[in-house]
Amino acid sequence: MAENVTPRVRVPRSAAAGETITIKTLISHPMESGQRKDSDGNPIPRSIINRFTCEFNGETVIDVQLEPAISTNPYFEFESLVPEAGTFVFTWYDDDGSVYTESKDIAIA
C-alpha cells in the first residue's frame, strides 16, 4: 500500500471559448517497479499507478496506461481544448485498488 499519495493539479481558472489550455498534473507516489529486491534478497512487490485519465464534462481528454519504468511522482503536462465552461476530472488508478480523484472547474472568460 503506497503511503502519502497526494494528487496535485494546475488548471487555469478561466479560458476563452475554444481556447487550448495547458494542464499540469503530479501525483506523489513511490512507483515501486517490482524489479528490485530488499536487503534480504526478496523481491519488492510492484506498486505503481497503472492508469491516469482526464475527462472534461464526461468526455475523455487523455487516458494513459503507465508501466513500471515510469519514475516516482509521475508528472503529466498536456493540452486541452475548452469549448465551454465545465469541470475537469482527473483520476489515478493504483495497483492496490485505490483510486485517487481530483477535479477543477473552469469558467469561460
Binding site: T6, R8, K24, L26, S28, Y75
Partner: peptide, 12 residues
C-alpha cells in the same frame, strides 16, 4: 513550484 519536484518534500 509546480514543476519543482523538491516542493513535494517541502509539503512533507
Amino acid at each position: 513550484d509546480f514543476d519543482n519536484p523538491g516542493m513535494i518534500f517541502v509539503e512533507s
